[in-house]
Design a protein around this nucleic acid. Structure first.
Lengths: 338, 338
DNA sequence: TTGTAGGCGTTATCAG
DNA sequence: CTGATAACGCCTACAA
């Protein structure tokens, strides 16, 4: 009598089907190696017992899990949602499962999650941005876990990446704004510590200022967490400065949405009294009024390509090749020419 | 010479520290059982080798992973984000790691993810809503994996739940609207198949209509996926009907945001020409213009309580106890009295 | 085509 | 307090 109080194992299936465990294993992993007849018998046994292979055991024996881990800074806003969705879809298509954790933008937490996912046998990891301790890369190296970085392109970095040039993109957007006549620039940035995207976007604004004859040092960005309330508060603070900005460049669309609220709060009209730009072009950018002028990021392409590349690295045991995707300016109503 | 091409194991640590593997295991899992001296020696060895215990092996031996799995319908919009964040934080506080997958509202995918998480040794599972095949609950039962359902309260269901009464909440919101003078109601719902939240919200609208002397059968909800574009299209379709609605009740805030865009597209003023309501009270509700009258759901409380309850079920090996949280109407500018 | 048996990295039991 | 050693469930040579 089978033990129903515990999950069925491959032994139970073997016994039920009257074959060896090796045969059961084969019909699961390489069905062609088994006669149709026995295969069917085994499958029936699996069915009636409701057997599911135990991943842990499988992993220990085979060292493969067909699982990929992704650690994103946050699930609270939609910044990574679309890209991750595409990543997951492509992974699914290739027979991999995605496990995701969020680090709340805390590097300690991220490290913990990385170790966790690795210890759990993730065949590969997707990380956002390059900024993290070298020790983590060393660890990943020792564990032979392929890592791919997304959302940021930087060939000098330790890991291959599928992303875009945050700095150049922000420079382009800023130059566009300057060319529309803006001279008094202000910026609301995400917290730049351990966040290359935020850091590089600030640098991009300064690049543009320098290129257009403005003083880069005069930019004094406010750094706040990426959420609407903080963006709003930062905007109010910015407007209170002695030289009131004509445009507020935001590190992302969420912050920009907050800035728009800040403007409302101060009874300022956007873009008549002040222009505002975002970054990322998430759905939110078209929901707020006025719609945001922002930098469009190819979220889905990035996610999909990342999946392809990471799976390639795993299956072909090769180094990843980085890709620099194109981000492009989307001009909408939140900026006006002066 | 230690093998540096492969991850260090407990054996390596034991050798390095000159103790047995059992001792190493002890300093990791129950440090008090070991002398301070040997403990320190072992910890040093762990440090220098960069050792991380292998979860799979650990799971096989101990049958515990301190991991909890959550499967949410989507990560693309923020509906579940805040609650999940709170869930994760509470879990982290209690020493558990959260692994999340998204099912894209597809029951087949969800089932796959469930099996995956279980096979992977999840100590417990968080699922959204009650609607799924009985077979899945049976499977979970056989595997002795505790399950908790969130976002929906229903004591007749197979699993304990931490949620709110979707039906009663929607009824309350609808009655509120009716009492403001609205008689021509229309609804944009999420796809209700395998989605009790959507289904119950429709029922709630009908309950309210019946209670207020309107004909429930006259409601002919349009069901679309939960996203802005579909909400917009549905709104346009609704307005084209022969009896133009005075209020459009939406299954959630995302759909409502879409409806607002639909109104803009048709040059209708909200709430002057048509009122619109949402559900969930996510951040989006306060970003759109006009701000949404909606049903506030206690996302964070729900997530936190779910974590507490699920951990309790796991650690005390007991049945879960359901909780009916209170959702409350938030009146903002998208509805006007007639 | 199928079966046998060793090993994967830990934990836990039982001695010492 | 510490050390052997037997599981845990599966995969994979190797044999038959």
């Amino acid at each position: 009598m089978p033990d129903t109080t515990t999950a069925p194992t491959i032994d139970d299936v073997a016994r039920e089907a009257g074959v060896s465990t090796a045969t059961v294993s084969r019909v699961i992993n390489d069905p062609d190696l088994v006669t149709v007849k026995t295969r069917e018998r085994v499958q029936a046994a699996i069915e009636t017992l409701g057997y599911t292979p135990n991943f842990a055991a499988r992993f220990m024996a085979a060292k493969r899990t067909f699982t990929i881990g992704a650690i994103i800074p946050t699930m609270e806003n939609a910044i990574f949602a679309r890209g991750l969705q595409a990543f997951q879809e492509e992974l699914h298509r290739r027979g991999y499962t995605l496990l995701v954790s969020s680090s709340a933008y805390k590097s300690k937490v991220e490290e913990e999650q990385i170790r966790n996912l690795v210890a759990r046998g993730a065949d590969g990891l997707l990380l956002i941005g390059h900024d993290r301790d070298q020790a983590i890369y060393d660890y990943l190296d020792r564990q032979h876990v392929p890592v791919l970085v997304a959302w940021s392109y930087d060939t000098n970095a330790h890991a291959p990446c599928i992303g875009f040039d945050n700095r150049a993109a922000m420079q382009a957007l800023t130059e566009d704004v300057i060319k529309m006549g803006h001279r008094r620039l202000a910026m609301i940035s995400g917290v730049s510590e351990q966040n290359d995207r935020a850091r590089l976007r600030i640098a991009g604004v300064r690049d543009a200022m320098a290129a257009q004859g403005l003083d880069p040092a005069s930019l004094d960005p406010i750094e706040v967490p990426y959420n609407i309330a903080d963006g709003q508060a930062a905007f109010v603070e910015l407007i209170a400065r002695e030289t009131k900005p004509s445009v507020v460049l935001c590190g992302n669309d969420v912050l920009a949405a907050g800035a728009i609220r800040g403007a409302e709060q101060l009874n300022m009209k956007v873009p008549d009294d002040v222009s505002i730009t975002g970054f990322d072009d998430i759905e939110l950018a078209q929901v707020v009024r006025p719609e945001l002028t922002t930098m469009h990021v190819p979220h889905r392409a990035m996610g999909q390509m990342a999946a392809q590349e990471l799976v390639g690295m795993i299956e072909e045991k090769r180094k990843g090749v980085s890709q620099n995707l194109k981000a492009s300016i989307v001009r909408r109503a939140s900026v006006r020419a002066l």
